[in-house]
Computed example of a mutant assay.
Amino acid sequence: MTYDPTGHLLLTPVDREAPLRVRRLRELGMGERPDPEFDAFATKLATVTGAPYSMVNFIDENRQFFAGLHTPEGTHSGDLSIKAAATGGVSRFMARDHGYCPHVVVRRKALVLEDVCDYPRFAGNPVVDEIGIRSYLGAPLIDRTGTALGTICVVDTEPRPWGRAGLETIKSLAAELVEQIHRREDGRL
């Protein structure tokens, strides 16, 4: 749990479902290694939304793991929160208190931030200063057991007018990926 030292705002939400999520992800064999199918889905996210960065993100108690990742450079090394700003490389790991996906998982609702700086609660997030994130669009991946496994999201270093169309698109794509996960679990993929 991270607080803004000046405004005393809770920046990272408490996630009571994390242990259940971790167990479910292990059952599914996901969340610990890159997955070419999720990389392809992340590329689809970027193409559909026109965003430079997109992720299929699974979250445990301490960190986020991008099992699917699309970047403009195609680099996926280092620690996103530290090395991305220094080297331009993007990692598949990020601290749980960085970014907006932990909010989406806990809220179990899509989140549209056209300009993160318009929202004091989100403007103080480390990804703003360390990586330069200015806009976010994400939706939860809620499976048939009711578990919020993680998120899909797209981000940009510029404000983006996602609007209602962006919200509907990200929700639709999240449902599509959940169906893909179910087919995989059922052995149909």
Rank of each mutant, 00 (worst) to 15 (best):
T147V: 04
I142E: 01
P161N: 11
M55T: 08
F38G: 04
A42M: 02
F122H: 14
D118T: 11
R33A: 15
N57L: 02
D156Q: 02
R92G: 01
P13N: 09
G7F: 15
I59F: 01
I152A: 00
A67V: 08
A85D: 11
V48L: 08
A86H: 05
G78A: 08
L149G: 04
S81E: 10
R121M: 13
D118Y: 07
Y136M: 10
Y136L: 15
A86V: 09
K109T: 13
A123F: 13
L25K: 08
P36Q: 09
V22K: 10
R96I: 03
G146L: 03
K171S: 07
P72V: 05
M1V: 14
P161L: 15
Q64K: 00
G88V: 06
M30H: 07
G31M: 00
V104L: 01
R184W: 03
A42T: 10
S172T: 14
T71P: 06
V104R: 02
G163Q: 14
N57F: 00
R160H: 14
A110N: 12
H76V: 15
R92F: 07
A95L: 07
F41R: 04
A84Q: 06
S91N: 12
D79I: 09
D60F: 00
P140D: 02
C101F: 10
H103C: 15
V48E: 07
V112T: 04
F66V: 01
R16T: 10
S135M: 12
E27T: 06
I131S: 02
F65S: 08
L45N: 06
Q180R: 10
H8E: 12
P72T: 09
F93S: 00
P72C: 04
G88K: 04
V90D: 00
R92M: 05
H76P: 03
H76W: 05
R144G: 04
L173I: 03
G166T: 10
R24V: 11
I152Y: 02
P19C: 14
L137T: 06
V112N: 06
T87E: 14
D35Y: 01
G166C: 07
F66A: 06
S54L: 11
H98K: 10
